[in-house]
């Protein structure tokens, strides 16, 4: 990830029943969204554990977006509500570890909300861009530069 120093990468965990379908719809509707996003299809956002988010940052993500169904509409009844609590818990860990909690965000969309999903993605990418690349990646880049020099 992040071969281009100036760019950032956002991993988007998208629920199969809503956000993933919405991303698909966005494609059909020819709606553009930033190429910085890497979509990971998940069976339900309730499948996502706190360690998934942390591992994403460890692996080089500058931001993580979790996109689940609208509250009350989860295919598995309350998976998205579980995910919301886990995202909040992971944000605490990020803050304690020295990363901005704003780098992790959860949004809710339905499968018909392609426009809203792309707006959420744009907003997330913009937020992460303002925060700059993750300090983890900065350190990695510094190490790489040191090796080169």
């Amino acid at each position: 990830m992040n071969s281009n120093n100036k760019e950032i990468t956002v991993v988007a965990f998208c629920c199969l029943y809503c956000a993933y379908a919405a991303a698909d719809l966005a494609g059909s509707m020819r709606i553009q969204y930033p190429a910085n996003v890497r979509i990971v299809r998940t069976p339900c956002t309730g499948r996502l554990e706190v360690e998934f988010f942390l591992k994403a940052f460890e692996s080089g993500a500058d931001g993580v977006l979790v996109a689940g169904c609208e509250e009350g509409s989860c295919h598995f009844k309350e998976g998205n509500l579980v995910a919301k609590r886990r995202v909040n818990y992971a944000r605490k860990y990020l803050q304690e570890s020295g990363l901005e909690p704003e780098r992790l965000r959860m949004v809710n969309v339905s499968s018909a909300m392609a426009r809203q999903l792309t707006d959420h993605i744009k907003d997330m990418v913009e937020t992460v861009r303002k925060l700059g690349p993750s300090p983890l990646n900065k350190a990695k880049r510094r190490q790489q530069q040191e090796i080169k020099s």
Binding site: E51, L54, E58, S97, G98, A139
Partner: peptide, 19 residues
């Protein structure tokens, strides 16, 4: 096991962020 995984991840993040 799960909390160990989370703690280890968080410490790795903290280590890289704070050198």
């Amino acid at each position: 096991e799960r909390e160990v995984s989370i703690m280890a991840s968080a410490l790795r993040i903290a280590s890289r962020a704070q050198n």
